[in-house]
């Protein structure tokens, strides 16, 4: 079986995000990029399945420009066998559905039997793409998975469904699984892996290569339009209480209950 891992580059989690002057997006000039942390869990799970000889090959699927190549190489260095970069002028301005169409087409082209992806990307936090990919392919899906077992043509996936309840979902392959934190501990690249990854050729597929109608992706196919970007309002300054301790405690409790409404 071939596992496809959807991998997106995002600003490093400790970045200070600035809105660009026109309010049309993030100013990426000083941003350090890294692999979306949830995608790292997806990649690691795929690599573990390959180590266990359940999967034959792990292929990375990335929608992005040439600036995302370094992240793809990071994934290859850790042990992914191949990667394809999905890039076309027509992809610009894609919403989640557009991205899902591109990824679904690439997965089909590569003969992928299981798609692993992060449960969400930490930049826009939409959590939509994996589910949409599954829907487009007509495959079963389980999202926010923190444990996965494969057995022949079927899978068993564990997920937190809120309120302390844990779901165990079984289904058949091919399928889409989105990975949550805790699924595994992503590995470091080996030095030899880094060196091999540098030499690997990463094919680039455009809309035509993927058999996609350019009108179905990018800004042309988007159902979501971004109107404006702005920074969240600045946090109001904190308050420092003064006076005797017993009266301060009383005041603090009142404030926590009536104003902050946390008690």
């Amino acid at each position: 079986m071939i596992i496809g891992v959807c991998l997106k580059q995002v600003p490093a989690s400790d970045s200070r995000i600035k809105i660009d002057g026109s309010g049309a997006g993030v100013d990426a000039s000083d941003l350090k990029m890294e692999i979306n942390p949830y995608d790292e869990f997806a990649l690691e799970e795929a690599l573990k399945l390959k180590d266990a000889k359940v999967a034959k090959k792990v292929i990375v699927l990335t929608v992005g420009g040439s600036d995302s190549e370094q992240r793809i190489r990071d994934a290859l260095a850790r042990g992914a066998d191949d990667a394809v970069r999905l890039d076309d002028a027509a992809f610009a301005g894609s919403d989640s559905l557009g991205i899902a169409r591109i990824l679904a087409a690439a997965a089909q082209k590569e003969g992928v039997g299981l798609i692993l992806a992060g449960k969400q990307a930490i930049d826009d936090d939409n959590s939509q793409v994996p589910a949409m990919v599954a829907e487009l392919l007509g495959w079963p899906q389980v999202t926010v998975v923190d444990k996965l077992e494969l057995d022949g043509g079927s899978f068993k996936a564990w997920r937190q469904s809120g309120g302390g309840v844990r779901d165990v979902v079984t289904g058949s392959l091919p399928a889409v699984i989105s990975a949550d934190k805790g699924m595994n501990t992503p590995r470091y690249a080996k030095l030899r892996g880094i060196m091999m990854a540098k030499r690997k050729k990463i094919p680039v597929y455009d809309a035509a290569a993927l058999g996609l109608d350019p009108a179905s992706v990018g800004a042309a196919g988007a159902k979501v339009t971004q109107v404006n970007w702005s920074e969240p309002p600045a946090r109001p300054p904190g308050r420092i209480l003064s006076g005797e301790v017993p009266s301060m405690v009383k005041e603090l409790v009142t404030l926590l209950r009536d104003e902050a409404k946390v008690l």
Partner: peptide, 18 residues
């Protein structure tokens, strides 16, 4: 010859991350 600056920094960055 395999260890140009780009390769060097890839190795050094992964080492630093570890």
């Amino acid at each position: 010859a395999d260890f140009d600056l780009d390769m060097a920094m890839s190795l050094l960055d992964e080492h630093a991350r570890f």
